[in-house]
Amino acid sequence: MSPPPVPTPALSYAVHTAGGPGLHKTSVMVMGERDVLLVDGQFTLAEQHRVVAGLLDSGRRLTTVFVGTPDPDCWLGLEVVRDAFPGARFVAPPGTADRIAAGAERHRAAWRNLGANLAGSVVVPEPLAGSALELEGRVFEVRGGVPSDPELTPRTQYLWQPEDRALIGGAPLSAGLHPWTAAAPSPAARAAWDAVLAEAETLDAAFVVPGHRAPDTATDPSVIAFTRAYLAAFGEEAERARDADALKEAMLRRFPGLDGLLGLDLGARAAVGVPVRTG
């Protein structure tokens, strides 16, 4: 008779949410008995130091840092993590890793106004082999993406942990903020984004962390519902808006009190055909 299977230890999750200067970026510490997985870095050195403090306080060994999107708020501060945990691996989906490598110095130059809060060097993650990573026997699947759109794919991927029903959302999800619609300026791109979220809803997640969130917002499936509702409203208003200002005004009426106004401004301009740089 074979011995009974050894139960896999439970994981715990801690979410760090940056303030406005850190673009409201989330980082998630996934902790096992001995090791910890970090999902996404931070934009500024100050916010990245706060995440490292949490990692050190956990008393666990950081084995892997997963970078979910090529946007600089996910990785620009990672030198702090590298210096504190020189043995950690830094990985990203191949398309994301390639874009970070290609745009790293351009992004550093673009954000030099951060001054002392800007990292002095860039940590470029290695391409993830396969479509999953593991922490103490638990598998995290890389899901989402739009195969027909190599530009949109890196901004619509997320991690899924089936046993915990945990969805760590990266760029496709926002809470309490205007989502970054500039990356999906066309109706077709927004429809593809929404299709990724519709599939994510079928997972019946219990724990959902958006890539960006306002303080004290939910970490449950309402995050997916909010982002989908926002995308639908944005599409409706974009069809009838005469210009970017009209689109912004309409979205402010429909979603009053949201932060992330830079995202709304750039998204409205992109939707009406004004060129904007999104990454």
Rank of each mutant, 00 (worst) to 15 (best):
S58V: 01
H178P: 10
F90C: 02
V274E: 15
G77I: 01
P72I: 00
T8V: 09
R143Q: 13
P21M: 05
W111A: 12
P93F: 09
P187G: 03
A88Q: 01
S186C: 02
G20D: 15
V81Y: 01
V81P: 00
T26H: 06
D149E: 02
V80I: 06
F226V: 00
G279N: 13
R190C: 02
R277C: 10
E47M: 03
L56Q: 11
P125F: 01
T153S: 15
C74L: 03
S2Y: 05
K248D: 14
D194R: 11
R108K: 14
L167W: 04
Q42L: 07
A10D: 13
R253Q: 13
V139E: 15
A183T: 10
G169Q: 06
C74A: 13
L167Q: 06
E79S: 14
M31N: 11
E249R: 15
P70T: 00
L252E: 15
F66Y: 12
D259M: 11
Y158H: 12
V196W: 00
L76H: 01
G103P: 02
A92M: 10
P93K: 04
V209P: 07
A18D: 14
E126N: 04
A238I: 04
F43G: 08
T17Q: 14
A191M: 06
T17Y: 09
Q48P: 00
A132Q: 14
A184G: 01
A198C: 03
R240E: 12
V276T: 09
F66A: 09
D265K: 11
D57P: 07
W75R: 03
D265A: 12
G176T: 00
E237G: 05
E163H: 14
L128F: 05
R106A: 15
A104K: 05
L135N: 04
P72R: 11
P150C: 10
R269Q: 15
V15A: 07
L114K: 03
V209S: 09
A10K: 09
D259E: 14
E141S: 14
A10S: 15
S121K: 13
L197C: 08
I168E: 06
L247P: 11
D98K: 11
G170Q: 08
P127H: 11
V223S: 08
V65E: 08
D164G: 13
S131V: 08
D35W: 00
L197N: 05
E134S: 15
A250R: 08
L78P: 01
L159R: 03
L197A: 10
V276Y: 11
V65Q: 01
S148M: 06
D164S: 14
R242E: 12
A244M: 11
E79Y: 05
E136Y: 13
H178K: 08
G169M: 02
T17L: 11
A102P: 09
R155D: 10
T156Q: 12
N117M: 12
L78E: 01
F226N: 04
G103E: 06
G257W: 10
